[in-house]
Every structure is written in structure tokens, then in C-alpha cells.
Amino acid sequence: MNDVRFSRVIDGMRFPLIYLVVVAHLIPFTVQEVTFPATGNELYVLISELFSHHISKISVRCFFFVSGYFFFQKCTSNLFQFAVLQWRSRFSMLLIPFFVWNIITILVIAVKNVLFEFVGLARDVEYVHVSKSTILQLLWTNPINFPLWYVRDLLCMIALFPFLFYYIKISRHFGILALGAIYLMNFESTIPGLSTTAIFFFSAGAYFSIHKKDLLHVFHGVKVIALLLAIAFLVLAVLANGEPNHEYFLRVFLITGVVSSINLFAYLEERNMLPSNMLGLSSLTFFIYVAHEIYIINFLKGFFYDLEIYENGWIKIVCYIIIPLLCIGICMVFFYVFQKCVPRIVDVILGRRPKKQSHIPEQVDEKLATNVA
């Protein structure tokens, strides 16, 4: 497989996927029933449910899949030596940002609420949540910066990778099919970090790497059936919103949606249609990933939701489009200001190697894992 081309495909996917992450957080996690849109409000419900609760979920699944692929890309016959190198590099690149950004979130919540109390305003729900939670809950079980559940689960996959390696090596595609069946049957572990989402998609990506499969070639061969299934099960999932069978439809869509997304960007890359300004943005996309939930997106939502005209369904649709763009724009401003003023601190909190080690090639999976795909 042409890993250089695949790396370019993933590089082109990074920013659109992080946009979907922001879109996923525009509405509450509770799903709403979708009806035929006869009014602006009903059309808003359809659009927001379609993107925030369905299409946007493809992003993190892609991150797990590609992280699994690149993690095992340079796996050697000396698994012990490979394990030592990977644990040393990956944990340092993942653990520091994971804990730092959770702690930053706690500190920002505390400072905001101290200021609120000083001027006579009530404390917000985030402060109440922090005050009633243990450190273990805030930093691991349910990360206070909740998008970091992805990094938590990825850390667990890295910790367990020798077991995954032998499982995939011995069972081959039968093992991946078994994990896929468990995922599709909606079985879930109660252990934080061991979600079937992480286990299946990380292992599926690892399978292609361990067994030296040409991923782009395989996906291209099933592009039509994958796209048709993705469309069909997306429709079924949206129509079944809130029903017991919704999650089953959704999971079929997500598997075929990951395949179709990679096929789409492979098509764009093959025809040189990937905008150059969307490439090489690993650090920026990770910053958006970890920073957007620290009051930025909630402030924007609160501002627009408090407008009198927001009750109009068509205005809701316009705000649904504007808010993620504004949120990403604000994050970009913060990123470039911090990058200019405190570059060393930015390196640390983003898990980047110091500049003096820049001669060491940074792998795409490290960008994907520590700088969010």
C-alpha cells in the first residue's frame, strides 16, 4: 500500500472531521423524534439530528481506525522492543495533554465561578458537577473535558496493544468480524476506556497494518455497496431516533460511513482536489478539539439562544450553521496567539516533540492520536 498517499488522504480529512466534532456538540445528547419537516422548527430538528447525532459520529470512529492502522505500521518482529518504544513515546504524547487539558478545564470552571460569585451571579452547572465529583471521575471515568474520552480510550488501546496484536495476528479477519459483531450487537463494557467503539475501530485499522493489506484498494473495491448501505442505514437510524433499534441502525451506518468517508477523500486526493490550506493542521485541529468545549461553544450557543428571534425555526438553522464556524474561528485565534506568545507551553499541552528533536519524523498516527487526527 502507498502509505504516503494514505497519509495525505488522512491529512485532508483532519479538518473536516474536527468540524464534525464541533457540530456534534451543538445540541444536547438526548435525541428527538424526527418528523416530516412541514415547518422551520421541524426542519431544524431533522438537520440537527442528522448531523449532530449521526453523521458527526463518523469523526471519532475514523480517528480510532486510522490510529490503529498507523500504530502497527512499523511493528517489528521484536515485539518487546517495539512495545517499549511505543509506550514510552505514545504515553508521553498522550498522557500529558490528557491530564493537562482536563485540569485546565477544572481551573477555568473554578475561576469563572469565583468571578460570578464576586459579582453576585449564581454558580453554573459545571461548577456543581465538579464540586460533586471525585478526582478519578473528573480525570478518567467521565473526563470533565468530555471530548477527551477518545484519548482515554486510545490510551487503553495502546496499553493493551500486545494482546490486540496477537489476537489480530492469529485470528486474522475472523477476529475482526467477531469484534464487529459484538460492536453491532451494542454490547458495552462498564470499564471506562474499554468501549467497543475503541476496540473494534482501533483493531480494524490495526488489521490492515499487521497483515499488510492495501486499505485504499480494499475500500475502493466496496465503495458502491458501502455508500449504499451508509445512506440506507443513515435514513433508518434517523427515522428510528429514540426507538430501541436506533443504535443498531446507527452502528451499521458508522462502519459503512467510515469506509465511505475514506473513499471520498481518497477520490479527492487522487484528483488533486484536496485544498492545500486543509493540510498540515494537526496541532490546530487538536487545539480545537480540546479547547472548544471550555465555555467557547457554550458561550456562543447561549448568546444565540437568548435572542428573541431564535424561536423561529429558520433562524435556528442559520445559527446551527454559524455557531461551529464562529467557534472554530475563535479557537484558531487563541491557537495562533498562544503559538506566537508561548510556543514552548503550546508544545507541551499539545503533546508535540520539542523543536530540537524535529529531525525525528512525526508519524501521521501520532498526529492523529495526540493532535486529534
Score class of each variant (00 low, 15 high):
residue 139 L to M: 15
residue 317 I to F: 01
residue 40 G to W: 06
residue 48 S to P: 00
residue 31 V to I: 10
residue 200 F to I: 05
residue 61 R to Y: 06
residue 140 W to T: 04
residue 274 L to C: 06
residue 181 A to T: 15
residue 333 V to E: 08
residue 364 V to A: 10
residue 223 K to L: 09
residue 25 H to C: 03
residue 142 N to D: 14
residue 302 G to E: 06
residue 20 L to N: 08
residue 98 F to H: 06
residue 168 I to H: 02
residue 246 H to G: 10
residue 273 M to S: 11
residue 75 C to M: 11
residue 243 E to R: 14
residue 114 V to H: 13
residue 187 F to V: 15
residue 167 Y to G: 15
residue 114 V to Q: 15
residue 245 N to Q: 13
residue 67 S to G: 09
residue 115 L to C: 13
residue 183 Y to C: 03
residue 97 P to T: 08
residue 69 Y to Q: 00
residue 303 F to C: 12
residue 26 L to V: 04
residue 301 K to Y: 06
residue 224 V to T: 14
residue 46 L to G: 03
residue 199 I to D: 03
residue 197 T to K: 04
residue 361 P to C: 04
residue 175 G to Y: 03
residue 170 I to K: 11
residue 45 V to M: 03
residue 156 C to L: 06
residue 201 F to W: 07
residue 194 L to D: 01
residue 247 E to G: 06
residue 365 D to K: 05
residue 54 H to P: 00
residue 231 I to M: 07
residue 26 L to M: 15
residue 58 I to P: 00
residue 328 I to C: 10
residue 358 S to T: 10
residue 320 Y to E: 05
residue 55 I to Y: 01
residue 319 C to F: 11
residue 150 Y to N: 10
residue 284 L to Q: 04
residue 339 Q to D: 12
residue 52 S to L: 03
residue 144 I to C: 02
residue 315 I to Y: 13
residue 349 I to T: 05
residue 87 W to C: 09
residue 33 E to K: 14
residue 261 S to G: 14
residue 34 V to A: 09
residue 221 G to R: 14
residue 131 S to W: 04
residue 317 I to Y: 02
residue 122 A to E: 15
residue 235 V to Q: 12
residue 262 I to C: 07
residue 137 Q to T: 15
residue 8 R to V: 00
residue 54 H to S: 09
residue 367 K to A: 11
residue 360 I to L: 13
residue 85 L to E: 14
residue 342 V to T: 14
residue 177 L to R: 12
residue 308 E to Y: 10
residue 145 N to C: 13
residue 144 I to H: 02
residue 239 L to V: 11
residue 371 N to L: 12
residue 19 Y to R: 02
residue 236 L to S: 12
residue 14 R to F: 01
residue 14 R to H: 01
residue 13 M to W: 01
residue 257 G to V: 11
residue 67 S to N: 01
residue 110 A to W: 14
residue 271 R to N: 14
residue 6 F to I: 01
